Amino acid sequence: MTEQELLDMFTQERVNMLIEVFNQKQLDHPKKECEKILHAEIFIENLPKKEKELVQNYIDFLIRQFALEETFLYQHGFMDGVKMLKHIGKL
Rank of each mutant, 00 (worst) to 15 (best):
I88S: 12
K83Y: 13
R64N: 07
D8G: 00
H29N: 14
K90M: 06
I37R: 06
I44V: 05
D80F: 02
E33Y: 09
L62V: 08
H39V: 12
V21F: 06
P48H: 00
D28L: 05
Q4R: 07
K83F: 12
E70M: 08
Q26T: 14
E69Q: 15
V82K: 09
K83W: 06
N16M: 13
M84I: 11
D60Q: 06
M79K: 07
L54Q: 11
I88E: 10
K52H: 00
L47N: 00
I59D: 01
E69S: 13
I42P: 09
E33P: 03
T71A: 10
E69D: 10
K50S: 03
F78I: 05
M17T: 12
K50N: 02
E33I: 12
C34Q: 15
F22S: 13
Q24M: 08
L38Y: 14
D80H: 04
Q65F: 04
A67Y: 01
F66E: 10
E41Y: 03
G77Y: 00
L18W: 06
A40P: 03
N46Y: 04
N16T: 12
G89S: 09
K36P: 04
K25N: 11
E5K: 01
L27R: 13
F22Y: 13
L6K: 08
V82Q: 09
L54P: 03
D80L: 04
E69L: 11
V15M: 06
D28H: 05
Q26W: 09
L85I: 15
F72C: 14
N46E: 08
L73R: 15
H29P: 11
F10Q: 06
K25S: 12
C34A: 08
Q75S: 02
L62D: 05
K50E: 02
Q4C: 07
I37Q: 05
L73W: 09
L91N: 12
F72H: 15
K90Q: 07
L38C: 14
I63M: 04
P30H: 12
N46L: 05
H39D: 15
V82I: 08
L91C: 07
L91Y: 10
D8K: 01
Y74G: 03
K50V: 02
T2C: 02
E51C: 02
Q26D: 14
I37A: 07
K31D: 09
F43N: 09
Y74D: 03
